[in-house]
């Protein structure tokens, strides 16, 4: 079977700090990582491939340095990787991103399943997966935790809902957007696997490779634009009243009155 995994390189949000003056995110010096949801999706694709056999192609759109994240995917176990990189793709919103990914999927030809992370930890839109399914006109399942069964014509997934889980069946080809699970331990590639990834194919495709030059690429093809990225203002230090409830209530009321809140 042919599997496509869509991934994104994101700033390591555990390392991100906010500039207190401007309220914007400081990206300088922040290491880049593979989006954790995408890493989960890739690990799931590898698990499925071990049973079904086939080939995993990893697809990403990003600047040339995103190649590092793809090389990691190859070390983890993907067979081939393609980076969609071109000045023409700069400024893409989720629609233009999914449009670009869809052209690449079409160019790749026959596929059975597309694996996406539910969302990327930088933008948190959770839109690219569903939009890609729409662009390709294939069924999609979101909030997927695992693939329970798969054969040549269909897939059954375990999908999270507000109240629990659903088992959902879909025909193929289809797109699955994965959440992660707390117990998930991503595969750590060994030195042998890292060195082995060197000889796997990692291609770069630009707009000339994808064609459809007047399509929805980049800033021009984006119906939405981010005007400003900022964090909510920092809150001051809180007050903790560590007393038994009968005392704490009085102290709380006293405090709220002294601050003029009540």
């Amino acid at each position: 079977m042919n599997f496509i995994v869509c991934v994104k390189q994101v700033p390591d949000t555990t390392e991100v700090e906010v500039d207190r003056e401007s309220g914007t995110i400081i990206r300088e010096g922040v290491p880049s990582i593979l989006n954790p949801f995408d890493e989960f999706a890739l690990n799931e694709a590898i698990r499925v491939k071990e049973k079904t056999g086939g080939r995993i192609t990893v697809l990403s759109m990003g600047p040339p340095q995103a190649q590092e994240a793809l090389r990691k995917c190859l070390a983890i176990g993907a067979d081939e990787a393609i980076l969609l990189t071109d000045q023409a793709f700069a400024g893409s919103d989720t629609w233009a991103t999914s449009f670009t990914l869809a052209r690449a999927v079409e160019k790749l030809g026959k596929y059975d399943l597309i694996f996406c992370g539910q969302q990327a930890t930088d933008g948190d839109t959770a839109q690219v997966g569903p939009e890609l399914a729409r662009q390709l006109n294939i069924p999609q399942m979101t909030y997927v935790e695992s693939i329970e069964e798969i054969d040549d014509g269909s897939v059954i997934c375990k999908k999270e809902t507000d109240g629990g889980y659903q088992r959902v069946k879909s025909g193929l080809p289809a797109l699955l957007a994965f959440i992660s699970t707390p117990a998930f331990e991503p595969k750590i590639p060994s030195i042998m696997e890292v060195m082995g990834a060197k000889s796997k194919t990692l291609s770069q495709w630009g707009i000339d490779d994808l064609g459809d030059e007047d399509g929805d690429y980049g800033l021009d093809g984006s119906p939405t634009q981010v005007i400003r990225v900022y964090s909510p203002p920092q809150r001051g230090e809180g007050v903790i009243i560590e007393e038994p409830p009968e005392v704490a209530v009085d102290k709380l009321i006293e405090y709220l009155e002294s601050e003029g809140i009540i």
Partner: peptide, 16 residues
């Protein structure tokens, strides 16, 4: 690229 990935693998393995 390989050296960066190797460093990352070692760091991740030990953290775990």
């Amino acid at each position: 690229e390989e050296q960066k990935l190797i460093k990352e693998s070692v760091r991740d393995w030990f953290a775990r």
